[in-house]
Computed example of a mutant assay.
Amino acid sequence: MRRPVTDATAETEDIRRRLNETQQPLYVSLSNLLETDIYEGRWPAGAQLPTIAELSERYDVARVTIRQALGVLSAKGLIIPIQGKGTFVADQVKPRKTISLDSDWNYLLATLDGNSAESLDVIKSCALPSTVDGPEKHFKDYRYMKRIHRAYDEPYCVNDVYLANDYYNRDPETFDRQMIIPHLTRVSRAKLKRMKQSVRITSADLAVAKYMNIPVNAPVAEVRRLITNRKDEIVFFSTGLYRGDLVVFNTTIDVPG
Rank of each mutant, 00 (worst) to 15 (best):
K193N: 13
D171T: 02
K231P: 10
R189D: 14
A209N: 01
S203W: 13
A221N: 04
L241M: 10
S203G: 06
V199Y: 06
I234C: 11
Y242H: 14
R224P: 01
D166W: 11
K193C: 09
V235E: 10
Y211S: 04
F237S: 06
V247D: 01
M195N: 08
N169H: 10
E222G: 01
L226A: 08
A207V: 03
R225D: 00
E222A: 09
D205L: 02
A218N: 07
F175Y: 11
D232E: 15
V208L: 05
L226E: 15
S203D: 09
E173V: 09
I234F: 11
K231W: 15
K193S: 15
V220E: 06
Q197Y: 02
A218I: 04
P215K: 03
N229F: 14
M179N: 08
V208M: 06
T185V: 07
P182T: 08
V216H: 10
P172Q: 04
V199R: 02
V223G: 00
T202H: 03
F237W: 14
F249M: 01
L192E: 11
P172F: 07
Q178R: 07
A218H: 11
S198F: 01
Q178Y: 11
A218M: 10
F175A: 00
Y242N: 09
R224A: 03
L226S: 13
N229I: 11
V220G: 02
L206S: 08
F237C: 09
D166G: 10
I214Q: 04
A221Y: 09
R243L: 06
I201C: 05
R177V: 03
T239R: 13
L192F: 14
N213V: 01
N250M: 05
A218Q: 07
V208F: 07
L241Q: 07
I214N: 05
P219L: 04
L192A: 10
D205S: 05
K191Y: 14
E173A: 06
S238D: 12
L226D: 12
L241Y: 13
S203Q: 14
D171H: 06
P219Y: 08
A207S: 09
V235W: 14
I227G: 03
Q197I: 01
V247L: 03
A190V: 08
A221H: 10
E222T: 04
N250D: 11
P172R: 05
L241H: 07
I227V: 14
K231G: 15
L184N: 05
Y211E: 05
P182F: 11
V223C: 05
S188H: 09
A190Y: 11
R230V: 15
D232Q: 15
F249L: 00
T239M: 13
Y168D: 01
M195V: 14
T239I: 15
V235K: 13
